[in-house]
Design a binder for these strands. Sequence first.
DNA 1: GCCACCGGTGGC
DNA 2: GCCACCGGTGGC
Length: 327
Amino acid sequence: MQSRSPKITIKMGGKRPEITPSTVHETLEKDQTSLEGPSVPSNNDRKETDENILDASSSEYSTDNEDKNKQMVVYDHSLNGSEVVKAVKNPKQDRPRPVSKKPPAVGAFTVQCANCLKWRLIPDQEKYEVIREHITDQPFLCETTRQWNRVVSCDDPTDIEQDGTRIWAIDKPNIAQPPPGWKRILRLRSEGSSKFADVYYTSPTGAKLRSLPDVTRYFESHPEHAQGIGLGRFSFQIPRPLRENYVRKRPAQMAAPKTPETLEPSPVEPVAWAAPAENMDLQLAEPLSWAGPVEDKNDLPAYLETSDLDGVNPAAKKAKIHNVNCL
DNA sequence: GCCACCGGTGGC
DNA sequence: GCCACCGGTGGC
């Protein structure tokens, strides 16, 4: 099993760690199998980009009548130039809704500035991986965007808001970039799955490896590809969804039936659906995250409150997040 | 037959 | 309770 101890500074079910004030985030798309370059607006075209944020209600995952505020961000590489990629309207929005429900895909990457805590879109996965690899040592700043010739400062508005219109998840910081010739693939699962996502690596020969033992076996059979590549270059850690109920919980062990002797009066909790405080803890504690589009309300199982859709966390907007995010 | 996707579970 | 790992399988 992979060692968990040297893993970064984020909380892993323990107490809240010190968080390096910097963040990255990614955008997820529905029904998009490959990652396209996300929009990195200039100061001049940011408004246009915001207006072009796609309305998920017009996608194949939504009905005609649902909340138009439920949006997702979609970038169509084919409709953009090779330089700065702009957000565009979803070209699929007029298509009929398919029967099958495909899992969402990462649509863009963003990082949170360590100073102003605003989200900045990252042009591509490679740059995101570089930033993520060093996020605790080299906090991300708005000025970092100059690496790809974008001039933006902490005085400029955020590129994207964590406003509940997308599915956000927490990414893990300091994951090594894949070795040359290798690619790290993150596959999201559909809502309600037993797991949120899968990570696999594609080797220079095209092999798909799903675990460290897989990598070990691959190197044993391809020793020529193992030169200078340690297992430490591979991480199968997956992001964690901010929405607590995105992943189906494993059924709890059946408790022994209570006898009259063990029954105790329990207080009624009229505000049981209020956002639990621990959500805030989670928001504050995780350096990496990402998100995708909100599901169609009509697709939700009946036991869910609609309040669950209202966002990943309003509190997340409140500045204290020092996270790397993707959405 | 292949493979993307999902479920299950043992170990921690 | 989480997660690494891998088996199963439906759709192509």
